[in-house]
């Protein structure tokens, strides 16, 4: 579940806050779990909801930064830094702005529809769809560049 929270959060501290809030909700509302479906799925939904609430509360979803600007900044900052292979997608996902990151998480990983995502995040369905497409294109482009470039992470680690 920490991994779920981490995917939505900006950093580890935020992820731990979300995890803590989520588990408090789990334990305080455990009587509402009716046994329909897996317990893990139920807890996972609570974590996702808690994460969305957290992002909303801290105005992270309403940031007006343009994706292109944000992504270029991130790209500059991470120039020459290759993600570790095991978590490379997660590393790239963490580089997205919070709003885009949430949409990619909800759609590609959690399996929510754009309509549901629009309701959860308070945005239009078309907005969710377009932002997902842009984020997806960016991630794929970035992934492609990484594959084409030689892996220098080992070199960095050896310094």
């Amino acid at each position: 579940m920490m991994g779920v929270c981490y995917r939505y959060a900006r950093n580890r501290a935020d992820a731990e806050d979300i995890l803590q809030d989520g588990f408090v909700k789990v334990f305080t509302h455990l009587d509402q779990f009716r046994g329909q479906g897996s317990l893990e799925g139920w807890i996972r939904r609570i974590m996702v909801t808690t994460a969305i609430n957290f992002l909303n509360k801290n105005k992270m979803l309403s940031q007006t930064m343009q994706l292109d600007d944000a992504l270029s900044e991130i790209s500059d900052g991470q120039a020459g830094q290759a993600p570790r292979r095991q978590d490379e997608w997660m590393e790239m996902l963490a580089g997205l702005p919070a709003g885009y990151r949430a949409i990619v998480n909800l759609y590609a990983i959690e399996g929510y529809s754009h309509k549901e995502i629009g309701t959860m995040l308070g945005i239009a369905e078309s907005t969710s769809r377009s932002q997902y497409a842009r984020a997806k294109a960016h991630l794929i482009q970035k992934k492609t560049k990484q594959v084409e470039q030689p892996d220098t992470s080992q070199l960095k680690d050896d310094r």
Binding site: M2, G3, R7, E16, L19, W89, N105, A108, I140, V147
Partner: peptide
């Protein structure tokens, strides 16, 4: 790029499945 696009959701999901982080005891 086309291959990567088709595999995007699948690989992302698998990566998320394998992605594990341990919280600190303070949590």
């Amino acid at each position: 790029e086309e291959e990567a696009r088709n595999d995007f959701e699948k690989s992302l999901r698998e990566s998320a499945k394998d992605f594990r982080v341990n919280p600190s005891t303070e949590v």
